[in-house]
């Protein structure tokens, strides 16, 4: 259970960074940390004691099949990681354009300099 709790702590760290910091790059870093926390949580939920990676070899016996960790969260997390990269590139390109227009990363300054 402590593992899940520490995943929640990591999630809250990212949420705090997203909410409290005024700098846009810090906000992006908060989103990235939240992404990591969710991925780690999903993988830990699929871990089995004495588990092995779900890859079948020629020497794999039916008993070893019972020791496989859950492959379903792994497949979904694989999707999630790549989507995280795509959204991150979109966010960073927005930040680069915002910096070119306003000359600052500060969110309060940017909302002041409207127009």
């Amino acid at each position: 259970m402590t593992v899940y709790f520490m995943c929640a702590v990591l999630l809250m760290m990212g949420l705090y960074c997203l909410v409290a910091k005024k700098n846009i790059v810090k906000k992006i870093i908060g989103i990235v940390i939240m992404d990591y926390a969710v991925n780690l949580y999903l993988i830990t939920i699929g871990y089995k004691n004495n588990g092995v990676a779900p890859i079948i070899e020629k020497t794999t016996s039916p008993e070893l099949l019972e020791r496989f960790v859950d492959p379903l969260p792994q497949a979904l997390v694989l999707t999630s990681i790549v989507i995280g990269l795509g959204t991150l590139s979109l966010m960073v390109s927005m930040v680069i354009r915002l910096y070119e227009k306003h000359g600052t990363f500060d969110m309060s300054q940017i909302s002041k300099l409207r127009g």
Binding site: Y47, G51, V52, P54, I81, V82
Partner: peptide
Amino acid sequence: MGAPDIAIT
């Protein structure tokens, strides 16, 4: 945690 594919990605 037995997820080499995820680790590489």
